[in-house]
Design a binder for these strands. Structure first.
Length: 301
DNA sequence: GTATGTACCTGTTTGC
DNA sequence: TGCAAACAGGTACATA
């Protein structure tokens, strides 16, 4: 599923291929992906038709395209969303939800929002060209030059919550998903259930360094497939297969110490961790084994 | 304000 | 073979 590096690849692709284009028509094929638009599907279409896309910006995993009306087209890919730039002759994708017909960009291509599970969506944010108010609560991501490292360390150490939950809290830091959280925790040799307030400053700083490293490496790999597929976020990039040390590795030997990677349930999802490198906190509730046998790796969609 | 749990959603896999 | 349940997880929202 798309995490921050994949979203950044999409943003860069949109910047290259659709900025400057005018929206000549909009087709909403399923209402759910525009559920967050205050005007509903009809208002969404009306707010976009005839508008020119002025840029492609990102905060965390949120994207927005400022419009010449002062509004912005906002997008979140959720679990399975894709933004594809396609020629009109390309057959509709199975899960095509919204189609924008463009004029003046790459010979009249279409911008398509494709989303199987529909956790993602599009909306028009009124007056949101600079920073949509719907995203104002979202913290900067660790790759943002304006990210405040000291404030992050303080925020983590102020909370009693499990450090993994803090990593996934977009009000503290954005762009970290379940996969990168597990990978960064593995690199830092930290168990995800360690309370933030019990961590030493150096541990939090190291964790932040490792979050950045994981993202940077993924970004370097995710960028390679862009040109061939235009705007592609299919979650099947080689990154997942080649570079993961913890996520999806249940039962396989830890690359560092050889102990079998374990999977436990956490926040209604899975955590993967090394029982030797990442000892569980003594005060934590006993880790429950995950409920059912796990398919290897992330979902195959 | 923080902490915690759950609904949303669908294709695939698993278990009976 | 066929059906039902489990599973993936980012985000918003509800509740304590």
């Amino acid at each position: 599923m798309p995490e921050l590096p994949e979203v950044e690849v999409v943003r860069a692709g949109l910047e290259r291929h659709v900025v400057g284009a005018r929206v000549v028509d909009v087709e909403v094929l399923h209402p759910r992906p525009v559920r967050r638009d205050p005007g509903g599907p009809d208002g969404f279409v009306a707010a976009l038709r005839g508008r020119t896309l002025l840029g492609a910006r990102r905060r965390g995993k949120y994207l927005w395209l400022p419009l010449d009306s002062g509004d912005a087209l906002t997008a979140h890919l959720g679990m399975s969303g894709q933004m594809l730039v396609q020629p009109p002759s390309a057959p509709d994708e199975r899960h095509l939800r919204v189609r924008l017909r463009l004029e003046g960009a790459d010979e009249g291509r279409e911008l398509r929002f494709v989303d199987q599970r529909m956790f993602g969506g599009l909306a028009v944010s009124l007056g949101g060209a600079e920073l949509p108010p719907e995203m104002a609560h979202v913290a900067r991501d660790p790759l943002d030059p304006a990210f405040d490292d000291a404030a992050f360390v303080a925020a983590v150490r102020r909370r009693a919550s499990a450090v993994k939950r803090i990593l996934l809290d977009q009000k503290v830091v954005s762009g970290v998903g379940n996969i990168y959280a597990d990978e960064a925790l593995w690199r830092t040799r930290l168990h995800g259930e360690r309370p933030g307030e019990r961590l030493r400053p150096v541990e939090v700083r190291t964790l932040l360094t490792n979050v950045r490293a994981v993202m940077t490496e993924a970004l370097a790999q995710g960028g390679t497939s862009f040109d061939a597929l235009y705007v592609n976020v299919n979650g099947e990039s080689g990154y997942f297969d080649r570079s993961l040390d913890a996520y999806g590795q249940e039962g396989r030997p830890c690359r560092r110490c050889g102990a079998a990677i374990r999977r436990t349930a956490f926040m209604n999802r899975s955590s993967f961790w090394c029982p030797r490198c990442q000892p569980a906190p003594r005060t934590a509730r006993p880790s429950r084994p995950a409920a059912a046998p796990k398919r290897p790796g992330p979902a195959s969609d």
